[in-house]
Design a protein around this nucleic acid. Sequence first.
DNA 1: GTCGCATATGAACAGATGAGCATATATAAT
DNA 2: ATTATATATGCTCATCTGTTCATATGCGAC
Lengths: 127, 127
Amino acid sequence: MAATIEICKDTFIHKDAVEKLKRITPSEETLYSLSELFKVFGDTTRIKILFMLFVSEVCVCDIAAFLNMSQSAISHQLRILKQMRLVRFRRQGKTVFYSLDDNHIKRIFDQGLEHILERSRGERSNG
Amino acid sequence: MAATIEICKDTFIHKDAVEKLKRITPSEETLYSLSELFKVFGDTTRIKILFMLFVSEVCVCDIAAFLNMSQSAISHQLRILKQMRLVRFRRQGKTVFYSLDDNHIKRIFDQGLEHILERSRGERSNG
DNA sequence: GTCGCATATGAACAGATGAGCATATATAAT
DNA sequence: ATTATATATGCTCATCTGTTCATATGCGAC
C-alpha cells in the first residue's frame, strides 16, 4: 500500500549513506525487541523498582510498602520486568525475593540521566 | 490515601539499604524525565529515525520515503524527538534537515542491544 | 485437611499514545 | 498577488498501558 500523499521529488540522502545505514541498522525483529526493552524503562514505577534492586534484593511487599502502592500493581510490573529478563526471583517460604538479572540497566540509566542533566543545563543557559 | 490492602508484616529491607537507596535515587522529577526519555525510545518508528540520523543529517521527506510512512507521521515523531532535545534541525529553503543532538543515544542503544543479545543467547541454551 | 499470609493473575476501566486525515504554515518561483 | 512544494499541527480514533478489584495459587503453621 504505497503512500497516497506526494513525497518530495528530490532525494537528499546519498547512496553510500543508504549503504551504511543498511549495514548498521539491526533487523526489524531486533529493533522491535529494543523498543520493547525501552518501553519497560518508560514507566516510573518500574524505574523505581529497578533502583531498589540496584541496592539489594527485595521482596514484593517491601517494594509495595516503600513505593506506597498496592501489592497487585507491583506484582504486575514485576512480571513485565521478569519477561524482559531484567530481574530474577527466588522463593523463601511465602516470600518472593527479586533481584537484578542484568548489568546493562545501570549503565543505560546513567546515560539517560546524563542526557537529562545536559538538557537541563541547556535550558538554564538558553532561557 | 494509605493502602487498604494488608501489606506483609515483616520487613526484610534493612535500614542501611533504605539509606543507600535514598542516596542513589534521583528526585521524583528526574525519575519522571528519565521515564519520558525512555518512552521516546520505546517506539520502532523513532528508533529507526534515530538510526538514520546516526549515519547522516536527513530531511523529513527522505525519512518518510525510506521508512515508507506518511510525512505527517514522521513529522509528529520528529516533534517528540525535538521536545526531548534528541535532534536538532536546520532549514534550507523549503527543506528541513534533522540531525542528532545527543551522543548518549548511541551508547544507550548499544547497551540495550547487548541486553537483547545476551537474553537471546540464554533462550537458546535454556531451551 | 483448614487457616492465614505473600504473591500472582484475569477482567475491567481510565488515561495515554501513534497514525491518518485535513489543513495550516513556510519558502521559493512566477 | 498565485501556485507548488516541504513541513507542521490539530483532531479523531483505534490500540495499548497501568492500576484497581476480585480471585486464584503457593507455602507454612496448625
